[in-house]
């Protein structure tokens, strides 16, 4: 294995063009355990991006928050603006692993892993986050929904890297819920994020729900959310959740359990925020 630690995007591009079989290292909290269990997946070339300072900041403006890809989960968790205006993301960072991993794992790494159980991803879906990508052909932006294409699959090409995660500001409130097999360090059995706004009469002005660990990618529960916005009652509409999910049986839970528990917890959560 050859190790490189570029300090600029230009240098990064140079290494990408010079080598095949490159693996990008950010926090390393997912890739190192994977090497442990299967050493055949170790790459020929490891490009450690942590010295690229341009990926390491949170910028605030009136319209949006721009989160650098190397922002750690602990930095997200303690950021006062994110706590106030993007509370689902803040909550998901709080429930993310333990302190030692939060000091190391990055938001860019979490989305590039594209795990169906990735704890930050449902919040990014309901905020309509935009992913900024840099490659040898320049920079571009795509939505989080288009960025994640399957289990562990993203739209990222060989010479590209995620540089920023952009959250547009809105008047919506948001919440995050995670069910793990224990309170800490657990991979989600299911998780979800809700972003919503109520009008002066306490009716839905907007409602977006995204759930993790119930489909190959995080699932937007649009059928259910739209039914609620159209004035339908939660108890009658909850079955619509089934249309937007396709959970599997795995070591953590069965498909049927995931369906039931998601619907149950969603129902309670919606009733808590919507008195309507």
């Amino acid at each position: 294995m050859i190790y490189y630690a570029p300090t600029t995007l230009k240098e990064f591009n140079k290494y990408c063009q010079a080598h095949d079989n490159i693996s990008i290292l950010a926090g390393g909290t997912d890739i190192l355990p994977r090497w442990q269990s299967d050493s055949s997946i170790k790459p020929k070339v490891l490009v450690d991006i942590k010295k690229m300072n341009e990926l390491n900041s949170i910028q605030y403006s009136d319209k949006e928050i721009i989160i650098g890809a190397l922002t750690t989960i602990q930095e997200l968790k303690i950021d006062p603006i994110i706590q106030q205006e993007f509370s689902a993301l803040s909550q998901s960072a709080r429930e993310f692993a333990g302190v030692q991993i939060r000091h190391r794992a990055t938001i860019g790494g979490n989305i590039c892993n594209a795990s169906p159980a990735g704890d930050l991803i449902p919040s990014l879906y309901v905020y309509n986050a935009v992913i900024e990508i840099a490659g040898s052909k320049g920079k571009k932006r795509i939505s989080i929904q288009k960025f994640i294409t399957g289990v562990g699959q993203t739209a990222l090409k060989k010479d590209e890297i995620v540089i920023n995660i952009i959250l547009p500001k809105s008047n919506e409130k948001s919440i995050f819920y995670k069910l793990g097999l224990r309170q800490s360090m657990a991979i989600s059995v299911i998780n979800f994020a809700i972003a919503y706004e109520l009008d002066g009469n306490g009716r839905w002005k907007s409602l977006k729900i995204a759930a993790g660990s119930v489909a190959p990618t995080v699932a937007s529960l649009t059928t259910f959310a739209n039914a609620l916005c159209d004035g339908n009652n939660v108890d009658e509409s909850i079955q619509l959740v089934d249309n937007d999910i396709s959970p599997i049986d795995d070591i953590r839970a069965s498909s049927n359990y995931r369906r039931s528990v998601l619907k149950n917890v969603l129902k309670f959560t919606i009733k808590e925020i919507y008195v309507g």
């Binding site: 190790y3 630690a5 290292l25 390393g28 909290t29 190192l32 355990p33 450690d48 942590k50 602990q74 302190v99 030692q100 991993i101 000091h103 190391r104």
Partner: peptide, 16 residues
């Protein structure tokens, strides 16, 4: 403790 923050040394390479 790495640069003032606790980390798991099993998840970090010496080169890092």
């Amino acid at each position: 403790v790495l640069n003032g923050k606790t980390v798991n040394s099993c998840l970090i390479l010496a080169v890092e």
